[in-house]
């Protein structure tokens, strides 16, 4: 009878395993996206079949996320409507200093499907009173 020595056993051929592992890494690396800073997991966007990703990114985006309880998330902080007004006023002063026209600002509203329509309208009216006029209501294509 022939026995394999222990030294032989330790020396497995790992080339193919490493190949596959590298392939997997390459796959996940390509798919990863780090642009999630402006999305919040507490928000479940409403679904619309017409929600197609825009061809060109909007100019000067200002992403306001409306939670189901009416609180608004802007730039990673939570505000009520009065607090949001102060924050946006501050932001617009900054834009003015940088000589960016207010009309080029696009207010992107990511509101929860279950929040009140009135809350979204409150946000829009607030922005309107601060001379912002381009709004985008965000929806997702399907549920996953």
């Amino acid at each position: 009878m022939k026995f394999k020595s222990k030294a032989e056993k330790r020396d497995l051929d790992m080339t193919s395993m490493i190949d596959i592992t590298f392939l997997l890494i390459a796959f996940f690396m390509v798919l990863i996206n780090f642009s999630e800073a402006d999305t919040n997991e507490r928000i479940k966007l409403p679904i619309s079949e017409l929600a197609k990703p825009p061809d060109t990114p909007p100019t000067e985006p200002m992403i306001l996320q409306v939670l189901s309880d009416g609180k608004i998330i802007y730039a990673n902080a939570e505000y009520d409507i009065e607090g949001l007004q102060k924050k946006i006023e501050f932001q617009l002063r900054l834009l003015k200093m940088l000589k960016i026209p207010i009309k080029s600002v696009n207010v992107i509203i990511r509101a929860d499907a279950g929040c009140d329509a009135g809350k979204v309208q409150d946000v829009i009216e607030l922005c309107q009173s601060l001379k912002l006029e381009n709004f985008k209501l965000r929806a997702k294509q399907n549920d996953q």
């Binding site: 017409l50 990703p53 825009p54 992107i108 006029e133 709004f135 985008k136 965000r138 996953q144």
Partner: peptide, 12 residues
Amino acid sequence: VPEGDFNIKMPP
């Protein structure tokens, strides 16, 4: 999930 926007123009 792909997300899209609906434009709404509301001048002051």
